[in-house]
Design a protein around this nucleic acid. Structure first.
Lengths: 234, 234
DNA sequence: GAGCACAATATTGTATACAAAACGTGATGC
DNA sequence: GCATCACGTTTTGTATACAATATTGTGCTC
């Protein structure tokens, strides 16, 4: 089992459009409520969100572009399942981009940025404390996104955002130790370095943090989590 | 004037789907047949391509995700018009990613890769010789994409691809000298370095090539190219 | 009973119909 | 003369209907 796989629409008064639906699905994937390989049927989603397939379709296409879902023609949409090779590439890309964003962020961070980062860390702690593994995972990724945005290079921040999203899938598939998110410490010292405007230290901490994450993956095994039998036996 | 703004569908037997339409539009933007700011009306495009608005819509959304077009809710889709700030960011991102791809490409290039690169260069020369500025521009960008793909990091290659696309818009808006594409030389020496597996040289050549391109832009002026009067006077 | 052909079903792809929002035009009032 | 408002037109947003393709189930043949 893999925990609840339900998607629930938040009870907003307004009918959701494609953007909202994709955001909601994206969040569900981040939080591991939707496992890699899960089929995302259009009619099913249309029922859940109370909209027509038109909306669902645009949402799925949006997610497909971010490579969070794979769309196979005439076969439907599935939560993406990065291969070990792709996983490796994604982490290599992160190791290329993120140290630089940490460096820039340390140089550019304003007082409000620092406040926001610390608030974020607090929320992370709360999520861990209340055993909400999904939320903790999501927030953990979002901290990296936030740092990239502070760096003030929105183009690269966008890239980092997609890498973080896909990393969530990778964690779902290849994470080694069940002990899991002991990374709060890393995040805390990273934010401290940014707060102190110590760019070099921030960069180094980011490198080692990413190496840590990377080394906590087991990319040698082919993952067969929650997939069709055909994939396993084929 | 800005050259012909027509979009023409290639006479293929099969009716085009969203992917084909977006590829066609993308190419038209690359080749500067569609200027930044041009409105892309759905009905108009549906007529041109002989499909329903459904297809056009998915194509436009796809392009919007790649930031080649901007979609304003209830107002329609327009060919994107990067600001000077965005243009700067895009070139900074290229300067971060592409030297590394050139380096890796030099190490990894196979005989077939080299053949393809040289064939590409030949096509570039032909385009320049036949005064097909649009095609020359397109091919010029594609060489960078090809190098990124040879580097074998598909994630980063995707990033480079979007950066190249957007660079085409930037050239349309901010290119300084009309003399233009004297870069054939740069491409030729770059490919030679890759062919010789000289990674360090390839990286250096890429850096200087990008600096060259970058310095050929005039990012201080706010561009008002081919826009509606309202934009200018608003 | 195994394998295959074919029909029934379900799901996606595309086109169209309808609703809502923005735009343009022209009349009206100051 | 200018601004403003109201109406009609145009264009986009959403839902639904229909077509095409894949999947599943059934029965036939060997």
């Amino acid at each position: 089992m893999y925990g609840p796989r339900t998607i629930e629409r938040t009870h907003n008064s307004k009918p959701p459009n494609g953007e909202l639906v994709s955001a909601d699905l994206s969040r569900a994937i981040h939080e591991h409520r939707l496992a890699p390989g899960t089929k995302l049927g259009e009619d099913e989603l249309a029922d859940i969100y109370g909209v027509s397939r038109t909306i669902i379709r645009t949402a799925l296409q949006r997610l497909a572009h971010g490579q969070l879902v794979e769309i196979h023609r005439n076969r439907g949409a599935f939560v993406a399942k990065p291969t070990p090779k792709e996983a490796l590439e994604i982490f290599e890309a992160r190791e290329l981009l993120e140290p630089r964003t940490a460096h820039s962020a340390a140089l550019r961070a304003t007082a409000e940025d620092i406040t926001a980062l610390n608030a974020h860390i607090t929320k992370e702690h709360e999520a861990v404390a209340s055993n909400d593994r999904g939320l903790a995972l999501y927030l953990s990724g979002q901290l990296h996104v936030q740092i990239a945005k502070i760096a003030g290079q929105s183009t690269i921040a966008d890239f980092v955002e997609t890498l973080i999203s896909r990393s969530s899938l990778i964690v779902a598939l290849y994470w080694k130790r069940e002990s899991a998110l002991c990374e709060s410490h890393a995040h805390h010292s990273l934010v401290s370095a940014i707060e102190a405007n110590d760019a070099t230290l921030a960069e180094e901490l980011m490198v080692s943090h990413l190496v840590d994450l990377h080394s906590a993956l087991d990319l040698r095994d082919v993952p067969e989590v929650a997939t069709s039998l055909k994939d396993i036996l084929g």
